[in-house]
Simulated scan of single mutants.
Amino acid sequence: MKYFVLLAFLGILGSLGSALYFMMRDGQHGKPKTSNMARALAWRVGLSVLLFVCILLAWKLGYIQPTGLRTG
């Protein structure tokens, strides 16, 4: 599970980096920069939602246990 979370975070950071790259580029090679940037940001949102759902499912199925302060 730790490796999956690490891989997801790296994917999220990679898509943010590519969005930054497309934002800073001048829209060369015939494609406007906004479509590439929007696609990269959409990937980031999708990966973030997928990571959240996977962590929630892992908790519900008992693969991971919450730690920290006790509530009672």
Rank of each mutant, 00 (worst) to 15 (best):
M1K: 05
M1F: 12
K2F: 07
Y3W: 09
Y3N: 10
F4G: 03
F4I: 14
V5C: 03
L6T: 11
L6K: 12
L6R: 07
A8L: 08
F9G: 04
F9N: 14
L10R: 03
G11W: 02
G11C: 14
G11D: 06
G11T: 08
G11H: 06
I12K: 02
L13T: 05
L13M: 15
G14Y: 01
G14P: 06
S15A: 15
S15V: 06
L16Y: 01
L16T: 00
L16A: 13
L16R: 02
L16Q: 04
S18G: 01
S18D: 03
S18E: 02
S18P: 01
S18T: 02
S18M: 10
S18C: 09
A19P: 00
A19R: 00
A19N: 00
L20Y: 03
L20M: 10
F22S: 00
F22T: 00
F22G: 00
M23T: 10
M24K: 08
G27M: 05
G27V: 02
G27I: 07
G27N: 04
H29C: 03
G30T: 10
K31S: 04
K31N: 05
P32I: 09
P32N: 15
P32M: 05
K33A: 12
K33E: 09
K33R: 15
T34L: 03
T34I: 06
T34H: 03
S35D: 10
N36E: 06
A38E: 11
A38M: 13
A38G: 02
R39M: 08
R39I: 09
A40K: 02
A40H: 06
A40M: 11
L41K: 06
A42F: 14
A42D: 13
A42S: 15
W43A: 14
R44P: 01
R44V: 07
R44G: 14
R44C: 14
V45W: 05
G46S: 13
G46M: 09
G46W: 01
L47E: 04
L47A: 14
L47N: 06
L47G: 11
L47R: 03
L47S: 07
S48I: 03
S48M: 07
S48H: 05
V49S: 06
V49Y: 07
V49K: 00
L50H: 03
L51P: 01
L51K: 02
F52V: 13
V53C: 07
V53G: 02
C54P: 00
C54R: 09
C54Y: 11
I55Q: 11
I55K: 02
I55D: 07
I55H: 01
L56H: 08
L56Y: 12
L56T: 15
L57C: 13
L57I: 11
L57Y: 08
L57V: 15
A58G: 13
A58E: 08
A58I: 04
A58F: 13
A58D: 07
W59H: 10
W59P: 01
W59K: 14
K60V: 13
L61T: 15
L61P: 07
L61V: 13
G62Y: 10
G62F: 09
G62L: 07
Y63R: 07
Y63A: 12
Y63M: 12
Y63W: 15
I64F: 10
Q65S: 14
P66R: 11
T67F: 11
T67V: 15
G68I: 05
G68V: 04
R70W: 11
R70N: 12
R70V: 05
T71M: 12
T71N: 04
T71E: 15
T71A: 15
G72F: 13
G72P: 07
